[in-house]
């Protein structure tokens, strides 16, 4: 389960000195799937950053299960993120220095796996996302869709309880969007993880039963 209470994030602003983004409250049960929509600048990505523990809110709290995320020291919070939170980026954001397997295995290593465990898990997941034949390829040689599949494998390699996906299909055509979302649904379900995806695409939003909107102000409690 993931729960956020009265989240507010302050930003430095050139005009006013500081702006505050009111994100409100959020509760997602374990294994839930939800989508956050909102216009540009509504705070979708910031919400994910806060839920991942990357950005400290100026007010409010975030719980992952029983863990108060921002009560943890930063280094512990980093380790927590590596083990319990999977993050899928808009454009896969793979490290160009590493091959496909190494990109996935690095996340597992940071999550506490041994080298062999990390490699085994990475290879199994790459097989699962249909890239077993490209496991030694460099990211630059993959198509955008393939890169995103690697990004999904990386997000799931440590067996996270929560997967946060930040517009994972923004740079894909319709056919690939469906393929990637199907895959994400399947692997998240297989892992029993909670999925929170942000998007501005109606086509993507329509796949979710639970939709939260930041266009109408701060989130309020449990999603409808």
């Amino acid at each position: 389960m993931i729960r956020a209470e009265a989240l507010r994030v302050s930003f430095a602003s050139r005009s006013n000195g500081a702006d505050t983004l009111d994100l409100g409250d959020l509760t997602l049960a374990a294994g839930a799937r939800a989508c956050v929509v909102g216009g540009s600048g509504s705070g979708k990505t910031t919400l994910l950053h806060v839920l991942a523990g990357l950005v400290r809110p100026s007010a409010g709290r975030v719980w992952h299960g029983d863990t108060d995320l921002f009560a943890l020291p930063e280094a512990v919070r980093d380790r927590f993120r590596a083990r319990h939170v999977g993050y899928v980026f808009q454009s896969a954001q793979l490290l160009q220095a590493l091959d496909v397997t190494e990109n996935v295995a690095l996340a597992a290593t940071l999550g506490g796996a041994t080298r062999r465990e990390a490699r085994d898990r990475a290879e199994a997941l790459l097989q699962r996302v249909g890239l077993g034949h490209r496991r030694t390829a460099r990211p630059g040689t993959l198509s955008v869709g393939e890169q995103q599949r690697v990004g999904i494998a990386r997000a799931l390699v440590s067996g996270p309880a929560v997967v946060l996906a930040d517009e994972p299909t923004a740079s894909l055509d319709e056919r690939r969007t469906d393929e990637v979302l199907d895959l994400l649904d399947e692997v998240v379900e297989e892992a029993g993880a909670t999925l929170l995806l942000v998007t501005h695409e109606p086509r993507v939003r329509d796949r979710f039963q639970t939709v939260l909107s930041l266009d109408e102000g701060p989130l309020r409690g449990a999603p409808s």
Partner: peptide, 8 residues
């Protein structure tokens, strides 16, 4: 990216 995937 490293920080986002859990690197302290």
């Amino acid at each position: 990216i490293l920080r986002a995937i859990g690197a302290p």
